[in-house]
Design a protein around this nucleic acid. Structure first.
Lengths: 340, 340
DNA sequence: GTTTATTGATAAAACCGTTTATCGGAGGAC
DNA sequence: GTCCTCCGATAAACGGTTTTATCAATAAAC
């Protein structure tokens, strides 16, 4: 039997309204004299009163909670560090603003979006939903602010406040860097299972486009997949491939390339240059330190959280779509190709 | 103006109680005829009715939500993969059971624990609170199930259902492995800032204890810190240290050792064996693959979540304290020391 | 100097959207 | 006629917040 506001009020000889005003500063035009206020506070402390936020939220229609929808939360540990950085960014902004963070399971049907409008959330950040499996229909959108963060392709979230990272920019920077070093044949190494996501398609197209315009030969044959075609890759290593550099899908794959190269007796970067995608804390721990494209994912996540909070406060949403540029963190895994 | 249960009931010409029974199967002894039930369902669909879970939770005093309290959520991305694995384990169990996960900011004062009892949580998993800064007083404990997961030392959470990983076991396994390979001088490499946590103290003590009993010389001088005494470590590398192996605090530090060794011209494992703590997906990506102590953190997290859910259901809590053993994943970063 | 407006302090009651305990009417079995 | 059984409405929670009403004391208006 927890102590309620009514208990405090009764004990202090005042009305619940007065206690609410004093303890929570709740709205209304209720006025309380300083003496009674002191009594109320005293009694509340004595009784160890704890407000029930559920009741307050119900009345005020605000829960001080923002939900985060993940497409595949299960890959947070085994996958790249993308998700942890994202989580860190979102959580930091929410906590600074005294909001809570709810992690929601993947929504599997379009209808399920409606279930987000169950009163428990003030807003939603929607990450990486829709890897090509349809779009969120306007009528299914929950009636609370939603911000999409790197969620599929811009087209699919039309009309939604959305934040993207410029896949083309990242790929271009990597290729221009390699071209400037003198590389002419570069392999693009994809992660198995990701091939059909909008990000993958965008980065693959960007690879083919920008390679050519940088003076690098590139065709579909230069796009390799780690898992699905393990055999092909194994052959690739052994057949003295023409590539002098590899652009890897993420920093985990880049690490695998580094290790595999060492096993094959290839020196990095002398014999093979390697560029990773996602410049994280691990890039500095690898041997050699990994040159990698930096997606400012933590900053993007912070921006997404700030946008949601702003919309919750009733401010006009910021630009409908924001596309963030990538940068390239040049470390030690790239250099000019050795003569053949 | 969202559609409420009352709206549906009015439109269907029945009482809210009947609608509640039909749409949510809510308790009560209200009976509804099949025809009226069909009407109610029809109207609910037409009106696109969404139940307000806040109201339901208030009434039923249950939110289907479990909170996770982190000590330093901010290190989720830059730190070791410990947290992502933990998060994965907890989330997987909760989602399987249709519970939600709330991430709570670090509680900074002992009093703050009381604020967890605000009605929004059915239970709490408490990770890594109390790195030596006091204990959770019994009277401050929230009146909901709490499970401590690797939270400080067993003594400090006395009386709380708690799950620990056996620090001594992990350290012992690593040392016995190294001793069996013939190593006689091993360095223990700590992470700066962690030195005073219960885990660190336990593992440090275990290092000193088990090193000796394994025939390895070990004193305080063999315990090094990466950041704080960067100078000392720099010297360590250059002065042909007597150590033939390093036991690193986590897999990130181990990776740094690998890279630094490469920079210093030391071959791993021939010249220096390296053992990491926390055997994660990254250990397989490093060069060479990293031998590491495996804390079954994902499984422990699952167990913690299951314990909380059980206690919420009113089952008797499991054993007050469970200590999980570590194992050693032997990979390629350890071998017998080269002759000097 | 009365009347009226204003202000401050407070109680009482309505409300948020569910769930559930209580009660009662209709119809059939005995 | 009494006793169940099946349906279903009504109203009271749940624990806060907000609106409205009340009343006294003070200030402004005549």
């Amino acid at each position: 039997m927890p102590v309620t506001l009514r208990d405090v009020a009764r004990q202090a000889g005042v009305s619940p309204a007065a206690a609410s005003k004093v303890l929570h500063g709740a709205g209304g035009n209720v006025r309380v004299s300083p003496e009674k206020a002191a009594t109320i506070r005293e009694v509340a402390r004595e009784l160890n009163y704890r407000p029930n936020r559920l009741a307050r939220s119900l009345r005020k229609a605000s829960t001080q909670t923002v939900g985060l929808v993940f497409e595949r939360f299960g890959s947070i540990a085994e996958g790249p560090l993308y998700y942890p950085y994202l989580l860190d960014g979102v959580a930091s902004v929410l906590f600074e603003n005294h909001y809570r963070l709810a992690i929601l399971p993947e929504v599997d049907s379009e209808d399920a979006w409606g279930t987000l409008a169950d009163g428990r959330l003030d807003g939603v950040i929607w990450c990486k939903y829709d890897s090509g499996r349809g779009r969120m229909p306007a009528e299914a959108r929950p009636p609370i602010p939603v911000v999409a963060l790197n969620a599929g392709s811009p087209l699919k979230v039309r009309g939604l406040v959305s934040i993207f990272c410029d896949n083309e920019c990242g790929t271009r920077l990597a290729l221009e860097h390699l071209a400037a070093l003198g590389h002419r044949r570069v392999a693009f190494l994809m992660e198995s299972g990701e091939e059909d996501t909008p990000d993958a398609v965008a980065r693959r197209d960007a690879f083919l486009l920008w390679a050519r315009s940088s003076g690098i030969e590139a065709s579909d044959a230069d796009v390799l997949t780690w898992d699905r075609e393990a055999r092909q890759l194994g052959e690739w290593w052994r057949t003295a491939p023409p590539h002098t550099a590899v652009l890897a899908w993420n920093e985990r794959m880049a690490a695998m390339v580094l290790r595999r190269a060492a096993e094959e007796g290839l020196r990095v970067p002398t014999d093979l240059s390697v560029v990773g995608y996602d410049s994280t804390a691990y890039c500095d721990a690898l041997t050699p330190r990994l040159t990698a494209v930096r997606q400012p994912i933590r900053e993007m996540a912070r921006a997404a959280a700030q946008a949601v909070l702003g919309m919750i406060r009733g401010e006009d949403p910021p630009q409908a779509q924001t596309i963030w540029p990538c940068t390239l963190d040049v470390r030690e895994s790239t250099t000019s190709p050795a003569r053949r």
